[in-house]
Design a protein around this nucleic acid. Sequence first.
RNA 1: GUGGGUGUAGCUCAGCAGGUAGAGCAUCUGGUUGUGGUCCAGAGGGCCGCGGGUUCAAGUCCCGUCACUCACCCCA
Length: 444
Amino acid sequence: MATKVTPLSGFPELLPAERLLELAFLDTIREVFELHGFAPIETRAVEPVERLVGKGGDTDKEIYAVGRLAARGEESGESDLGLHFDLTVPFARYVLEHAGRLSFPFRRYQIQKVWRGERPQEGRFREFTQADIDVVDVDTLAPHFEAEMPLVIAEAFARLPIGEFRIQVNNRRIPEGFYQGIGLTDVAGTLRIVDKLDKIGPAGVTRLLLEAGATAEQAEQCLALAAIRTEDAGFVDRVRALGVTNDVLEDGLRALAAVIDTAAAVAPGVVVADLRIARGLDYYTGTVYETQLVGDEEWGSVCSGGRYDALASDGRTTYPGVGISIGVSRLVHLMVTKRGLTANRSTPSAVLVAVTHEDSRPASTAVATALRARGIACEVAPRADRFGKQIRYADRRGIPYVWFPGADGPGDEVKDIRSGEQVPADPATWECPAADLHPTVVGG
RNA sequence: GUGGGUGUAGCUCAGCAGGUAGAGCAUCUGGUUGUGGUCCAGAGGGCCGCGGGUUCAAGUCCCGUCACUCACCCCA
């Protein structure tokens, strides 16, 4: 039965060359994560719904429910399951479940799909991949981990062909204490409004704040705070100059200054204090991160996270943590569609072994086996077409070399179809140039 | 969930005073009988998203519906 196929909005699928690009990104990310000693884990795709709800604010209603078709309408007694919408909530559950077998502080990385049922848009998907690192400890978490997270990301991003980027850091206690200090009680609501600053500008934010019940002076103070952005701990004096005193505020200033001082010493200019950012899910309690690509800030954040002190608790023991997550799908999608990045071929094959005649296919297969034994990815031509077609088969896929087996015994030759150069070669000794061994990232 | 836009060939799109479906690219074949890319010639390929209505006649007008898309919300 021929059913018309249509794309599913928000569930993107990549072509081979794009997937190879994504894999190249993932390889780099994983390598850097492991260089920093993060241990790999994977959690199941589903969690009991009651564990997911209430953790991510408005994401509650975006959770995908999962159930057996046969369970519909029956009193199954099964607990309701939902697909996880991030990797932090499942990780918190994982820590509680396996605490007895883990060593703390526990540092792990996790690269998996997550699902959110929100309306898709450019660079916003319903199914996407996150690459997440977190550190959790028992009862207390040393503050230096909050400086470490963005530095690991900075190292990974520096190895990716994505250009310049800025990791913006804030501490939620700063706006919280500040807003309280000037008499605003709806901290979350105010944060949400101020967060729109980039989109609607100061006048728009002022208008919304006034509508929310703030005075003109309070709105002005909010904007003054949000305007502060420094590459070092200079933000502390600028906040103090606003004349607001509050213990929570002071606490936040101290914490953020510590993160910025540490980060600035290692990666100056990459990690900046930006007091307007407030994002992240509801469970963040202190430091929060957000990352933008320089020149393409309107794309939104491609990496964010923060510190959470109460996400994982069994009632007796609390496991505070801090983590940060790369939006791999968004990053790759934007690189492909906006910057023209892709892989230089649509298959891993470095060599196409031609088939002279169907009768001699075993000889071609033997060549391929010899090449593979030495780590050279290759495939055998699907048909014993005339050589022009076999070369075209390779050309269409970006395969750089075509191997022509000799008629009888020796006499093999390999052709670089880009240059046209063709030389005698032996499958047991031929060296594929390192640059051609694997697909590489091109474009941009 | 709310509002706007768009649904025609694999892809990008044209067609609209209502009169039995087009272009470019891609694919395939041949020129080129075992060495590609250029060029030339040709071919295949469409319930014009779906359902209903108006009409002698609907890809074209009307209504509905679904999908995609942009914005809001929220977020990687």
